[in-house]
Nucleic acid binder design. Structure first.
Lengths: 246, 246
DNA sequence: TGCAATGCTTGACCGGGATCAAGGGGCAAT
DNA sequence: ATTGCCCCTTGATCCCGGTCAAGCATTGCA
């Protein structure tokens, strides 16, 4: 039986081997053939409109997702309804790893702009990584890096002052955008002050005031969601001024 | 060639299949034979004296460790020397997962009492989990649960007030001790006020004051490191009194 | 094109928790 | 049993960042 033309087209559209983002979400240094063996990883793609959610906390876990384009936040809701932003995700980053442990997602993933993800059924990820060692290794690294990232945020929240936290946030954002070929110094925030504040453990008013202060100090220029970093070195200095906070 | 008696003895001593903790750190529901196939996981054991470190941040990553007995803290040191406690670990819990992503450890693991760990060379973990599906699945779950745990701490630090955080800490400790067959209501803290404070993002004085306050309120009884929980329901109520903090 | 909704900024004030300081208790080593 | 060190407790004071409030800017929809 020959493959129908439509299936071929779909396959091509979802092929990891053709994806410009692959060095962000897949192991590097593979031969063309090895790469092709990864094309089975992605079953389909899914578009998420701004404001819609990819999955909700409590929902059964079935797949991991790689961001193709767009921007997401992950949120955790506590028993009493408080909402905490636990992360922001952009192209090439992996979503849904929280769900593996308990077979349901613990957090909610919401698109902050129109986005698209590659759907990777988790059973397939596990199957493939049993037979394909580079994938196994890579997958473990991705999981581990998520742990390290979270611990970095713990350090942020646990031992830094508000202005240090916001500076660190901007520096981090700038670095991640650079990796993806965007400008390091000028970008549009996809999230609100409230979401930044939740992520960084401060109120939206504090975020706003600090943006204004950084601007007065000549470190950045802000107009609503538009941010231009003028002196990244200054931000890094703010980040690390050895004092204890909270 | 027969196996020398000493090797046999070592093997017996390190056999997962014989370990009373195995339901805490290995997949459950395995046959005796399947269990035996896991005995290769642990290469050796290692004792760590109180105050000594199992590994340091920056050190090359080679193995994961399962706590056999004892108590550990993990700490992260920032560029400017500030130290953040990122977790406490007890029997049956897995250490070292932070190292997988970058081939070196990012945090330091220090014993808070005389302890022993099982050393599981990571190459062996990956090999075995390629051929033995239940181990693969289990390992992924453990990694994922660490992510979820860290996100829980982020929520703690990002959106709860000091007294809520400390109450949550006590409730969590009590639960983990119960799982391990210890008393849920009476235990000895292995860490100092300073370490608790670092973990929870507050100063040691605040920890001390809150302990005193909880005692006045009849929720607990504290004498130095000795804690007796009198009303766990009260602690849970403190934990969730819907207000915003920090 | 105008209106409503949402998000941002800024000011005034307040309070939780940090900081500074002093003293007390327990444990380990001898 | 004594000594010294580390840890814990408690008080007094201060300040960062939260809270409350008012008004402005931007965006999306009718």
């Amino acid at each position: 039986m020959t493959e129908p033309a439509l299936a071929t087209a779909t396959r091509l559209r979802t092929a990891c081997s053709q994806c410009t983002l692959r060095e962000l979400c897949l192991p590097v240094g593979l031969s063309a053939e090895e790469l092709r063996s990864l094309d089975d990883l992605v079953s389909t793609r899914r578009k998420i409109r701004r404001g819609d959610s990819l999955f909700y906390g409590g929902e059964p876990f079935t797949a991991l997702y790689a961001v193709r384009y767009g921007f997401f936040k992950s949120t955790l809701t506590s028993g009493d309804g408080r909402e905490q932003v636990t992360g922001f995700y952009m192209a090439g980053e992996l979503l849904g790893m929280d769900g593996i442990g308990g077979d349901r997602h613990t957090c909610t993933l919401t698109a902050l702009e129109d986005s698209e993800v590659c759907v990777m059924p988790f059973a397939r990820v596990e199957d493939l990584s049993r037979t394909f060692e580079p994938l196994q290794r890579h997958f473990h690294k991705v999981l581990s890096r998520e742990i390290v990232r979270d611990q970095g945020v713990m350090m942020l929240l646990g031992s830094m002052r508000a202005e240090e936290r916001l500076a660190a946030f901007l520096v981090n954002l700038s670095q991640r955008l650079t990796t993806r070929g965007f400008s390091a110094s000028e970008f549009v925030l996809r999230m609100t002050r409230d979401e930044i504040g939740s992520y960084l453990g401060m109120k939206l008013e504090t975020v706003s005031r600090l943006f204004s202060r950084f601007q007065e100090d000549g470190l950045i220029e802000v107009h609503q969601k538009h941010v231009r970093i003028i002196e990244i070195g200054g931000l890094k200095r703010v980040m690390a001024q050895a004092q204890s906070g909270s």
